[in-house]
């Protein structure tokens, strides 16, 4: 049996444990990443749900932004969920918020509204097949616009909520809060064989 891939979860803030557990369920070894050494040791990285303004500042303060960019540009698979998708985006609509610029999309933060508009939705994701995916949106962003090489994997209403560009995946929702491992498995499938 092939060794389990070691997948990092950026652990500066957010729902780290939930992603670690979901990665284990999907067949990977999940590792919390708080520093450079842990980042260097992982084969793929998840940026979890949380607060984007907090995490983008901590990435800078702890000198992780540049090494992370370099790894991803060199091909390491990266997946941002909700806050993570904001952090990896090219820009944030209407806000002068710094981002990592690794996914050629403009996101709109809190696009569906405040917490009272957070919702559970049965979401059709053709790449995952049937049945629909139980998508959990919490103060979620959506894709406002995307570059030509960005593949739209799922939309809710008028807007993209799951996209992929090469080795970078973004979801507005939180697969780590469900028992359905399909998005985590899809992400593991992005690792080079």
């Amino acid at each position: 049996m092939a060794p389990k891939p070691q997948v990092g979860v950026l652990a500066l803030q957010g729902d780290v444990e939930e992603h670690l557990a979901a990665l284990e369920r999907a067949g990977a070894r999940g590792v919390a990443v708080k520093n450079r050494a842990a980042l260097d040791a992982c084969e793929a990285l998840v940026i979890p749900g949380g607060e984007s303004t907090t995490v983008i500042r901590l990435l800078d303060r702890f000198a992780l932004a540049e090494p992370l960019r370099e790894r991803v540009r060199a091909g390491m698979p990266l997946w941002g969920t909700c806050m993570g998708m904001i952090v990896v985006a090219r820009a944030v609509a209407g806000l002068d918020q710094p981002t990592l610029g690794l996914l050629d999309v403009t996101v709109r933060r809190n696009a569906f509204g405040r917490q009272n508009d957070s919702a559970e939705v049965e979401l059709a994701i053709p790449a995952l097949g049937e049945p629909a995916f139980p998508a959990i949106f919490i103060r979620a962003p959506w894709i406002e616009s995307a570059g030509a090489t960005v593949e739209l994997l799922a939309s809710y209403g008028e807007h993209g909520v799951m996209v992929r560009q090469g080795n970078v995946l973004g979801t507005s929702f939180h697969p780590e809060l469900t028992a359905d491992p399909r998005v985590h498995r899809y992400f593991l499938g992005m690792l080079a064989p």
Binding site: A11, L12, Q13, G14, D15, V16, E17, E18, G49, G50, E51, T54, C82, M83, Q115, N116, D117, S118, A119, E120, V121, E122, I136, F137, I138, R139, H174, L177
Partner: peptide
């Protein structure tokens, strides 16, 4: 189709605040 204010989304927001 769309369910708001569920236990999952209410507890979920707190989960997003962890480590903060």
């Amino acid at each position: 189709m769309e369910q708001k204010g569920t236990l999952t989304v209410k507890r979920g927001l707190a989960q997003m605040l962890k480590g903060g």
